[in-house]
């Protein structure tokens, strides 16, 4: 697919896979097409030939009463049946192998991430790290990621094409998904299920970092991230775009956006969509509370979690941070004052 490979937007599709799941899906995709073509190609080739050869005014044989041939019937039932048997076997195996609920085989333990779909942002909670991000999923490359997902609003579809499967995200329910990125990189992700007027803006980026960079990232966020206050939560619950949320949190337009959704027209410039929203803690059990329709328990949050790696002073400085290896991430370093 040169047209796809040559486009400027990187890692849009599973045809350019960045993880084992997407790579297997690409393989299945082409296999299914190749196998099915065995019954489709004869139609594409023979139909024009028959139409021409047996055209009115042509000299080919004409048998108006001919209506049955055992050999032909055996072929037209038998060959599709054979193709079906092959496809069915492939489907059974691939479906079980690529079940989104099935943990990925790896020598490393998976990273647990909890995902909440809001109108119209994605909230990512990292219970082990005690941090949270909005519209930005940061994962270590080469290590499986185990996602639990729910929606705080209507049904949504969580999808990172370059990494693997999409899964529906539903209110009062929890779905599961397992993904893995082969190497560091930035992969677009989005909501696939229409969920209202700002649905088309409900995108996020997935950043896969090296193990070290990921550790540094989590420490940096724990040190420098924003506080996850009840105000943040109510802004997430109100219908907002990422840009509107970012502006509200930075205190510029707080009054204008709470409560009602903004007009599409004057939503901010695209640059606002990339304002990073990273939180150094979140209320413990927030995901479970949202999924169970309970109010979050603000008395306990994740800031008391013990960190697995000491914080290096260097990592607080963006210039010398390993994060700067990834330009996209460096550009998205926290800018606004932490509230």
């Amino acid at each position: 697919m040169p047209l796809i490979a040559g486009c400027s937007d990187a890692h849009l599709s599973f045809l350019d896979p960045q993880g084992p799941i997407a790579a297997a899906q690409r393989q299945h995709f082409w296999w299914v097409i190749a196998i099915t073509l065995t019954v489709v190609l004869p139609v594409l080739v023979l139909t024009p030939l028959i139409l021409w050869r047996y055209r009115y005014g042509g000299r080919a044989r004409y048998r108006p009463q001919w209506e049955f041939s055992l050999r032909a019937d055996l072929a037209i039932w038998g060959i599709p049946l054979l193709v079906f048997a092959v496809l069915a076997t492939l489907t059974w195996r691939s479906t079980i192998a690529l079940d989104p609920y099935r943990p990925l085989v790896s020598d490393q333990p998976p990273l647990e991430v909890q995902v909440v779909g809001f109108d119209w942002q994605w909230l990512f909670l990292y219970p082990e790290q005690g941090i949270a991000t909005v519209d930005e999923l940061v994962i270590p490359a080469g290590r499986p990621v185990s996602l639990r997902l729910t929606s705080a609003s209507v049904m949504q579809g969580f999808f990172v094409p370059a990494l693997g499967s999409q899964i529906d995200v539903m209110n009062h329910m929890v779905t599961r998904l397992h993904l893995e990125a082969d190497a560091p990189g930035v992969f677009p992700g989005r909501n696939m299920q229409y969920s209202g007027k700002e649905f088309y803006r409900q995108r996020f980026v997935t950043r896969a970092l090296s193990a070290d960079a990921f550790a540094d990232f989590t420490h940096q966020v724990r040190a420098q991230g924003r506080s996850f206050t009840p105000e943040v939560f109510s802004l997430l619950m109100a219908k907002n775009t990422h840009a509107a949320l970012a502006r509200a949190l930075d205190g510029t337009e707080t009054a204008a956006i709470t409560g009602r959704a903004r007009q599409t027209d004057d939503a901010g410039s695209p640059a606002d969509d990339s304002t990073p929203l990273r939180f150094k803690h979140f209320p413990s059990g927030l995901f479970e509370a949202i999924a169970a329709h309970r109010a979050p328990d603000w008395s306990q949050d994740t800031s008391s979690l013990s960190t697995t790696r000491p914080l290096s002073p260097d990592s607080l400085l963006p210039a010398s941070s390993p994060l700067s290896i990834h330009p996209a991430l460096a550009a998205a370093a926290p800018t606004g004052a932490t509230p």
């Binding site: 899906q25 097409i33 139609v43 594409l44 691939s94 479906t95 696939m192």
Partner: peptide, 24 residues
């Protein structure tokens, strides 16, 4: 001729592991 192409893509969609990619 066109319907069989739709049938082909229908088979693609019918494989759940691929449908996870092209659904919606």
């Amino acid at each position: 001729m066109l319907f069989v192409l739709g049938g082909l893509t229908g088979i693609v969609l019918a494989v759940p592991s691929v449908d996870y990619q092209v659904h919606n």
